[in-house]
Amino acid sequence: MRHSDFQRLVDEVFGSAYGRVLVREQVLPKLGNRTPEDALTAGFEPRDVWHALCDALDVPEPERWGADDHRQAPPSR
């Protein structure tokens, strides 16, 4: 997942305004109590940040991949 994919999903799943607030302010314990923005800046993989954000907000797996029914979860490493 690229940074642009991360931002696109944030916008689709949470809405652009609320999503941007979450990226700046939501503290993610799974990423060392960093915000998504701080985690990405620190070099965390966007995929890991996305999953940590969705986990923290209890987003169900089927809803994590946005509006595109053909979008698939990126392959695990």
Rank of each mutant, 00 (worst) to 15 (best):
V23H: 07
A56H: 09
N33T: 01
R2I: 04
H3M: 09
D5T: 13
L28Q: 05
E37L: 15
S16W: 14
T41G: 02
E12W: 05
S76I: 11
T41Q: 14
V49E: 11
L57E: 12
D69M: 10
W50Q: 03
R71A: 07
K30M: 15
C54H: 10
Q7I: 14
D48M: 11
P46K: 09
V49W: 11
E61K: 11
K30D: 15
R71N: 03
E61D: 15
D38A: 15
T41H: 10
E25D: 14
G15W: 13
P62N: 13
V21Y: 15
D58M: 10
D38F: 06
C54L: 09
D38H: 05
R34Q: 15
F44R: 09
A56E: 15
L9Y: 05
D38W: 05
L28N: 00
Q26N: 04
R8E: 14
D55H: 08
S4I: 07
R2N: 11
G66A: 03
V27Y: 04
R47E: 15
M1I: 03
P36A: 03
G32Q: 04
L57G: 02
R71I: 01
W50D: 00
W50C: 00
S4K: 02
D38I: 06
V23A: 04
K30V: 10
R71L: 14
Q7W: 10
D5I: 08
A73I: 02
D5F: 06
R64S: 03
W65D: 12
Q72M: 13
G32S: 03
L9R: 04
G43A: 13
A73P: 06
S76P: 01
A42Y: 14
G66L: 08
E61P: 00
P62Y: 12
H70N: 14
R34L: 14
V49D: 11
R77Q: 10
Q7V: 12
L53A: 01
A73D: 13
E37R: 14
A67S: 14
E25V: 00
V13C: 02
W65Y: 11
A39V: 06
L57W: 06
G66H: 03
G15C: 08
A67P: 01
D69N: 05
L57C: 04
R47A: 14
H70C: 03
Q7A: 09
P60G: 04
D48S: 13
W50I: 01
R71W: 09
Q72G: 06
V10L: 06
V23P: 03
A39H: 05
R47Y: 13
V27E: 09
G66E: 04
A56Y: 07
W65C: 05
D38R: 08
E63Y: 09
C54G: 03
E12K: 05
A52I: 08
L28D: 02
H51P: 01
G32M: 10
E61C: 01
P62W: 15
E25P: 00
E25I: 00
L53V: 04
L22Q: 10
T35G: 05
D11R: 06
Y18M: 07
V13G: 01
F6S: 08
N33V: 02
D11W: 11
F14H: 09
V21W: 12
D5N: 10
R8L: 13
F14I: 08
A42Q: 14
T41W: 08
G43K: 12
